[in-house]
Design a binder for these strands. Structure first.
Lengths: 221, 221
DNA sequence: TCAAAAGTGTTAGGCATACACCCATGT
DNA sequence: ACATGGGTGTATGCCTAACACTTTTGA
């Protein structure tokens, strides 16, 4: 669970109440319920719903890890399917139920280098951050993470916070329009203390029949 | 299991003897043995070893799929962790044991569009091919798939067969040397019916401390 | 009038494609 | 001699980072 606030990208960690790794920070998770979950994705959504009372549209399976010694105090073999979610921290009121004594947002840079996390969760955090940044760098916009309407400045700021670095305004906007990812709405707004900004929304249509950008790996010879 | 022959990239399919999907072609698989497999990767290796009597160095987990109705004739819930392997067809003598009545190599283009494959295996084939091609296009060389020594012509031919399209010789070689992926060996060879070719091997060292190519997503501002 | 953010245009350089060209060997 | 594949150089064009510039509002 990666969360964005006004400043930076963070990851939600919980402190484990019981062994293994008692007292260590870990990624929150849950167990699959074959009576409730029709698919893996369903299970991931259910766990998030139970924990956060929130419907998460932008979840993505990252990897599965499993092994004999993964959780040997409780089971002879354990398999975890790792999902990533993206949320606004402001939208979320996570509650430390279950087996966690505490919950906290932690900077991703921190967590990805903290060798004291439980299990292999440090690597998992690093993987999630890397994948997410790669997606944003390639302009796969974090759908479901965006409001219905946003200004280009806001969008850029979101991407910058996820990437952890500044972007060039002009290049950013050209890329957006070249690939036809967003379109203006007719109600402009956002006039805080300066020039008002045009509002945009996502284009969910297929790239409009033309050519522009296929990118299915089919490069010319 | 993707296999390369002198001409093209193919995928190994088996014909199912029993329901579900009796008589349909499917990707060969096996069940995890928590008494034998210490990790998921171990399990994947063991299944391949049992089926092909071959140690496969270049396996990669692609995705996990699971659901209530995935294999409902045999189990109320089924989870599959999908791996991809790359092999030389010539090195492999697969035998149709277990629950398969037949085995065959099939062109990947074919299989990835054949709606009659069992389960969701058409999508899985398409995914495996896409990922593999993307790796090759980005010059993540198929390690373990290459002989210890090879000529640049051979390497290019391998990549071309995987990608299913021709590559430019000059660009291909420049990319290799720019990124320091291969290095020449001092014993040259391969003089069939024309000029002999220098033999190369992979560089497994980290990019030699300099800068050249970091590519951890850290682009300049 | 000034600050601050929106919005647009231009330039320079890196990278990859495409192509042209020589080299060495067996037939 | 010539066909075949090895090996190398070069130019064109695209994409993008970098930056300069104008516009519009509130204070």
């Amino acid at each position: 669970m990666l969360g964005l606030n006004d400043h930076r990208l963070q990851v939600l960690l919980g402190k484990r109440e019981a062994p293994p790794y008692q007292g260590r920070w870990a990624l929150p998770g849950g167990v699959l319920r074959i009576d409730l979950d029709e698919t893996l994705d369903d299970g991931a959504r259910r766990v998030m719903r139970e924990r956060l009372a929130l419907e998460l549209p932008f979840m993505r399976q990252l990897v599965s890890v499993g092994g004999k010694y993964r959780d040997q105090d409780r089971s002879p073999w354990a398999l975890s399917v790792v999902y990533r979610a993206l949320v606004w921290q402001a939208d979320v009121k996570p509650l430390a139920g279950k087996r966690l004594s505490d919950l906290a947002w932690r900077d991703v840079e921190d967590a990805a280098t903290d060798v004291k996390l439980a299990f292999d969760h440090r690597e998992l955090v690093a993987l999630a951050v890397e994948k997410t940044r790669q997606e944003v760098a390639e302009m796969e916009l974090p759908v479901g993470f965006l409001p219905k309407a946003f200004t280009l400045g806001e969008l850029q700021s979101i991407c910058e916070r996820i990437l952890g670095r500044a972007l060039d305004k002009s290049s950013f906007r050209r890329k957006l329009s070249d690939r036809g990812l967003v379109q203006p709405i007719e109600g402009e707004m956002r006039g805080g203390a300066n020039r008002p900004a045009q509002l945009f929304e996502l284009c969910h249509r297929v790239p409009p029949a033309g050519q522009s950008r296929a990118d299915t790996g089919t490069k010319p010879v």
